[in-house]
Structure formats: C-alpha cells, structure tokens
Write a protein that binds this DNA or RNA. Structure first.
Lengths: 148, 148
DNA sequence: CGTATGTCAGCTGTACTGACATGT
DNA sequence: CACATGTCAGTACAGCTGACATAC
C-alpha cells in the first residue's frame, strides 16, 4: 500500500481549492453568456484562431488537450454558423486548414470586448491590481502543470 | 455601449488566462480519474458532505452555485451507487437530508488520498511552496468573484 | 505497411429550463 | 395564498471511445 504519499498540506489544500473554484467559475462564465452567444468551447477555439490561422482540427485539439474527434465537433458547429472555413491543404490531402471567415473574425473581436467578458469586468471592479497579478501568476503555474 | 469603464490590461489578460486554463485543467483532472472512479461532480459533493452532513439537495446546490434540479441528479447518482442516503426530516416534511453511508465515507476518504489526487501530486512535485501559496491566494480571489 | 487526419456514430456526464406535486 | 422543496421530462453542450476511409 505505498505509504509514501507524503503530500504537503499546501498541495492538498491548493488542489481542493482549485477543484472547488473551477466548477463554480465555469458555471458562472457560462451563465453570463447571453442567448445568441457563442458556447464556451466555441469561444475558446475562435480566440485561439485569432492567434494564428494555419491550424488543423488536430492541431487545435492538441493545443486544448483533447481528442481530435471532440475538437472536430466544435469546429463543425463553428463552420455551420459560418464563422470558420475548412480549406484543403494543397500540400497534404489529408489536412483541412481552419480559417476564420470575416464574420468569424468580427465575432471573435466582439467576444473579446466587454460584452461577453463577465469575468474581466469582475476582475476589474472587485479586485486590486495586485490581486489580478496574483491570479495571472497562479494561472501560469497551473498552465505548466497541465502542459506537462 | 455604456461600457464606459475601460478594462485594465491586467483584467483582460487575467480573464483570458483563467478561461484558457480552467478548460484544460478540468479535462486533465477528469482524465486522471480511473475507471471505477467517482465523476467530477460526484467527488465534489462527497467532499462537501464530509464537511458537514445536515444538508439538503437545495443547500448543496446553493453552495455550488447551481440549480437544485441539477444537484438532484448528482445526488441521485450517488444514492444509486450507495454512497449517500436521503433521510426524511421529521421537522419539515419537504426536506430530505443527505447523509453519507459507511461506504460513502470510505470513498470520500480514499478520494482525498493520493489515489485520485492527480492535481495535488502535480502541485507537490512540480511547484515550490511559494507557487502553491500563490495558487491558493488566487483561488481565494476568484472565489470572491463567483460568490458575489 | 504503419501513421496521421478526418468523419460518423453512440455513449456518458453536466447543467439547464419548464412543469408539477406536496408540505409549511 | 405564496413559497420552499423535491421530482420528472426534455434539451443542450462537452467530451469520450470505437470504427472506418483516405492520404502520406
């Protein structure tokens, strides 16, 4: 029974806090989205595409740490909504490069504005600059953990 | 319109980081769970019950910031698995108090141990004590935001 | 051939809304 | 009566696995 788990109290506590907060944060962010808004997954992909467009479904899936089949579903919904296009890659017949449409770019921009950004507004109005820096630092730490 | 208070760069950046990280973190934590393991929502409820047992479905829903119908589904699954019991409240015929069974208590304990705690292990092995404190501090900030 | 990419189908888990019964 | 609590039904979304075709 490998007795050697020896986790420090801070590790256990941090893990509990993170788990607890993630759930509520996610529900809150989602609830903050209006009716015609993008879903959580859609907004993530759109945001990622604005940061570089030569990506395929598999690339996006790897970046988000999920299966390519799961990402394909999200990309399909964006394509159905006319926000992205799948373009054949002349150099590799298997690949279909995802590109933002004009409307997709507009939505991505709008989504980055105050409208959908409930969280940013909260961080602005209820936190000090120091607290925001703490959050940014913590996210960087957590990112390193998931990145493995 | 009317979004007159300009958001500070740190608020926008923190919001983006948080959104990006919680998605991947959630998938990672879930994937770290083995086959017979508790689901994310089940584990949350079980953990919460170990911190006080006189709660109803509605109490738990309020604590997690979700609808009571949603929480009822999770509680039902735990009841089906024999980990909790719903007991009638003699003082109020509407209420059904949720209590851990012996097996439920065992599982909650086991879940808190190293086995299911992928995140705690990561925080232990890949972070400094200072970094863990940063994470804890950030979670406390975020918790204040969702708590509203 | 093996591997990478993409698509389709089916499943689970999470959480929502609406409608309704019942108890205070 | 209104209000709280709980249950049931239907829906949407996110993500998984397996199976398969195609292209490198």
């Amino acid at each position: 029974m490998s007795e050697a788990h020896a986790l420090s109290p801070s590790a256990v506590r941090a893990a509990q806090e993170v788990r607890s907060v993630i759930g509520r944060l996610r529900r809150r962010i989602r609830a903050a989205g209006g009716d015609g808004d993008l879903s959580y997954a859609q907004a993530s992909v759109l945001a990622r595409l604005t940061g570089g467009e030569g990506q395929t479904t598999s690339d996006l899936a790897a970046a988000e740490g999920m299966r390519h089949q799961s990402m394909a579903a999200t990309v399909s919904s964006l394509a159905d909504a006319g926000l992205v296009e799948r373009r054949p890659d002349p150099a590799d017949g298997r690949r279909r490069v995802i590109a933002l449409t004009v409307e997709g770019r507009r939505q991505a921009e709008e989504s980055r504005q105050a409208r959908g950004e409930w969280l940013a507004a909260q961080l602005q109005s209820k936190c000090t600059e120091d607290e925001r820096q703490t959050v940014i630092a913590a996210m960087s730490v957590l990112e390193r953990l998931v990145h493995e």
